[in-house]
Design a protein around this nucleic acid. Structure first.
Lengths: 257, 257
DNA sequence: GCCAGTCACTGGCTTAAGCCAGTTGAACAT
DNA sequence: ATGTTCAACTGGCTTAAGCCAGTGACTGGC
């Protein structure tokens, strides 16, 4: 057999995983359904329990199933996505008096909660320093870290970086930043958000991120490095958003120039 | 010990993985470096080989290392991202006579190659049907599937959906679509791309995608569901882009309204 | 100088067995 | 009816052992 075809010649664990995947995709196993137990699968295929276990691990890594100790392995439920639209930066939203996140949550009938984790003067990471045009070798920024929840489910981790020389001694150093949030304060400092630049990438979460966001294995994160530019094209704020991939999506609507 | 602190009380495999992760993050192990062999790790920690192996699997799942049979396990090299800017839809780019992808590749000094996998009349997936405003229960679309390569490395899978009633009998059904590609033909049909709507999400690849893109474990994909709207706000093209997460990023620059 | 064979080393995969820790429901006692 | 106990089940993790398949360097033979 030199047939590079597909099915034969491949490890038993993969074969079992593929069979199960087929069952899931065909609808023979629906979201929420329980898979056969590891021991049952092993017997069914005449394999060791570890081999069946490995098959389930493969599916978990693909984000198809989740195991719960003592209960079983279940087909993962597709989650409704929490969409962050590009209009989250829109000035129109100011009128509602809600921050973009609260607005987005309300739109989807969820309760928003924001936890201020820390506000500290720091030396910026390189990528942030480059975009904010500040030195990367001194404590040139204020770093505000927030965790965002929707209906008490953690949804995103946000790190906001502001120039220390601007934020020093203002409400930007406080948990409560006042009317219209940090963008309100930044406007008072002469920065009207005119353009934004979002750099988007994806990766697997760090263990810390997985813990904070409560991520199961097989769930990546979306990382957005956001830069706000004012009326003069000056970058005045950089934020790093880390979204959980299983419940979050982004939406960009823009004119073609 | 009820200390939920951190380190103690956790499985040996995780402890080993954490130690290695620390070594990698501290720079004690640099990108490209070889980790100790499974057998060496096992002995070093007084554990079974399977336990050391499990530790390495954890790191691989996090995208930190890759194993190569017969050679060893290596710290993954950070890859330069292939950035797709929002100006990829720009009309200005028409003048160069290059398609957006070729332009992007050229900008980064890579050689672009596009492989036309299939062009077929099909029943559209639900999400596509909704966005293109065509029936989801009949063969109402043409599906063009392309694979994109940069320097012979697969970079993205693109599925483009067009209305069958418009594409029928035109160059849109052919591999070679003529000057300015499909957007050139669609303009002749009266659709000038005026706004775009990109819905972005992330997930782990399917086995097929992993095979086409040559993805190692621990690498997610970026999925973009793109809709082109014409001067009358009519959707005339929907594409699904599947990008490899380890080499691809997206960039959106937009005005704040 | 070149090539081929060999061997020690790597990860890939499986088996078989055992103990642990959550979960659940049925049997039992109140 | 209510609550408790317990046994049978689930996955979580580890050990110990073995065979396979790539890799690469070293060793001869030509």
């Amino acid at each position: 057999m030199t047939t590079p075809g597909a099915s034969s010649q491949q490890p038993a664990s993969r074969r079992i995983a593929e069979d199960l995947r087929t069952d899931i995709e065909s609808g023979q196993l629906s979201p929420g359904d329980k898979l056969p137990s590891e021991r049952a699968l092993a017997e069914q295929y005449g394999a060791a329990r570890n081999t069946a276990r490995e098959a389930i691990r493969i599916l978990a890594e693909q984000g198809l199933v989740t195991a719960q100790q003592g209960r079983g392995v279940f087909v993962r439920e597709p989650q409704r996505l929490f969409r962050f639209g590009s209009d989250r930066y829109s000035l129109k939203n100011r009128e509602t008096g809600l921050t973009p996140f609260r607005l987005e949550a309300k739109r989807q009938g969820k309760e928003a909660r924001i936890e201020v984790v820390s506000i500290e003067r720091e030396t910026p990471p390189r990528d942030v320093a480059e975009r904010l045009k500040v030195p990367a070798d001194e404590a040139s920024v204020v770093h505000r870290e927030n965790h965002y929840f929707a209906d008490d489910e953690p949804v995103q981790i946000v790190s906001t970086f502001l120039r220390w020389d601007e934020a020093q001694g203002t409400l930007l150093m406080q948990p409560k930043t006042g009317k219209h949030g940090i963008y309100g304060r930044l406007e008072e400092l002469g920065h009207v958000m005119t353009r934004v630049r979002d750099e988007i990438s994806t990766r697997m979460p760090t263990p810390e991120e997985a813990a904070v966001l409560g991520l199961l294995s097989g769930v990546p994160v979306l990382e957005v490095l956001h830069t706000s530019l004012d009326q003069d094209g000056v970058p005045f704020e950089v934020s790093r958003y880390v979204h959980r991939g299983d419940q979050t999506g982004l939406l960009y609507e823009l004119p073609v120039e």
